[in-house]
Computed example of a mutant assay.
Amino acid sequence: MTRQYNILIFDGFSNHCLANMVEPLRAANTLSRQSLYAWRFCSIDGRTVQSSSGLTVTPNGALSEQRGDVLVVMPSYGYLKLDTRETIRAILAAAGKHSQLAGLDTGSWLLARAGLLNDHRATIHWDELARFEETFPLVNAVQERYVIDGNRLTCSGAMAAFDLASALIRRDHGPLLSMEVAHLLMSRGGADQYTLPLKSEDTLVNRALTLMQANLETPLPIKEIARKIGCSQKRLEGRIQAELKTTPQALYRRLRLNLARKLAEETEQSIAEIAGRCGYENASAMTRAFKAEFGQTPTAFRSGS
């Protein structure tokens, strides 16, 4: 089921903050080949708004016209001037049409003014945290990059918006997709673009990932990977399950098939050549695994059908 995000922007909004929320959602759609997320941009009255750096955006409509899963409030600069009865009434009315509310950067201020963060943990841009605490004593203000407290989502700025979006993807669709999204958005071009390593927060898992990705064409037994990184296979299995909610075997297979998908999409190599590069004995074996993982054959994926 597609989750609908409606993003409320104002004059002075941050391009960086907006992109860091939307691009991970877009990347999750791209990698999964599914419409996991959809988004619309809106303003209070539906009129054009301009970002802090001069980017003009024509919204999809007025806030009152929006209904969906997540309402994202994103004023960024000049938020105190936006703290008006008109704005707060509009946000309160829209809140009832959404199951979750998010305040990005200084959006937390407007949600708090509307009483929508009372008795919730929340954060705001750290430059404004002291004033936020004093003004809204019913909000449990914390100095964190982002906070997910039930159906209230807040983050402290543009860079933290990426962290929040990644956490939401992780919550909705698992840690592996979230990690792949981060990898995609931090990729570089060049000769090594097909084998850039995924990264995990767990050091042991990260070492296993590095070994796996260095040996995609000739896969190593999981027992050998564990030996090379200095732990038992059982311990490795436990750490990967805890960190990525999968088994080492499934993780290794996913890495090989991710490479196959990228090669199918971005090169003219034959399916047999791709199979060899991804550690499969023949094209048929890879095709079966590819279809089981992604719901279609590499040939169909390549043709966009």
Rank of each mutant, 00 (worst) to 15 (best):
P75Q: 01
G174Q: 11
L255H: 03
D163M: 11
L71H: 02
S64I: 10
I124V: 15
E273I: 01
S43T: 03
A95C: 06
G103W: 02
Y252K: 13
G107Q: 00
L244E: 11
H120C: 15
A122I: 13
C42N: 00
L71Y: 00
D149W: 12
A95F: 04
E266P: 02
R239F: 09
A94S: 09
I222N: 10
D119V: 11
I44V: 12
L244D: 08
G230F: 12
Q193C: 12
I7E: 00
M74D: 03
L177T: 05
E281S: 13
D202H: 12
L82W: 03
P137T: 07
T287D: 09
A264E: 13
Q233I: 02
K234T: 14
K199T: 13
L36F: 05
Q233K: 14
Y146K: 03
A283H: 08
P137Q: 06
F13A: 00
S53W: 01
N60R: 05
G68I: 05
Q241G: 14
A264C: 13
L244H: 11
Q50D: 00
P248V: 04
Y252L: 13
F301D: 10
A214W: 09
T58W: 06
E268F: 12
D69E: 04
R131I: 10
M74N: 09
Y37W: 01
W39I: 00
Q50A: 06
I7L: 01
T297F: 12
R131G: 09
Q193Y: 05
E144Q: 15
T48W: 00
I91C: 03
A260G: 14
L263A: 05
D45E: 12
I91E: 04
W39S: 08
P298Y: 05
R288G: 07
D69N: 06
T48L: 06
F13L: 01
A38S: 15
Q66W: 00
A292K: 15
C42F: 00
L164Q: 08
L184G: 06
P219E: 05
R277C: 13
G12L: 01
L198M: 13
F41E: 02
A250F: 05
Y37H: 01
A158N: 04
K228D: 05
S53G: 03
P221W: 10
K199Q: 14
D127T: 12
Q34N: 08
R113I: 07
A285K: 08
R235V: 13
A19G: 07
V181T: 07
L82D: 00
M179G: 11
D69H: 11
S232F: 07
G189N: 11
D83L: 12
L177C: 08
I274Q: 02
R227P: 01
G276C: 08
L263G: 07
S270D: 10
D149N: 14
H183W: 15
F10D: 04
Y77V: 11
